[in-house]
Amino acid sequence: MKHTISVLLQNKPGVLSRVTGLFSGRGFNIESLAVNQTLDPEVSCLTLVTTGPDSIIEQITKQLHKLIDVIKVTDMREVECVEREMALIRVKAEAATRAEVLRIVDIFRGKVVDVSPKSYAIELTGDDKKIQALIDILKPIGIQEIVRTGTIAMARAKKTP
């Protein structure tokens, strides 16, 4: 089962390697990873996506908690949340397909961020399913390069005041 885990940690040198070292050392896998500063410059937020049975996820969260520099660990599966990642996709766009590529990008609410005579670079944000869907559609036309970020996630605010 796929889990997105959000980790708040002290923004100190070597902290990221404590987290990744924990995963490699204990044989947990990381599917994607994103990390950056929060509003508090002393705190970083690390979001990682991992898979495993519940017992493994429980160990992952406990072991993350055990790291001295970790402030908070949240398994986003246990809360309502918004998840996003971003992809940059360079797709072949020659005379016959240029218009179609633009139409597709429009449907997905993507943006063209780089144009050349034979290709477009497209920027798309969304959850991993949406990005995978665009990739699947563009594949037959000819994808030349893909760069994707890790997933980031934020818990939804309470709807009642």
Partner: peptide, 14 residues
């Protein structure tokens, strides 16, 4: 040594 002992210390510092 901080890198080397990261997985076998409770915590370490440089």
């Amino acid at each position: 040594i901080v890198g080397i002992t990261r997985p076998c210390t409770k915590h370490n510092y440089l």
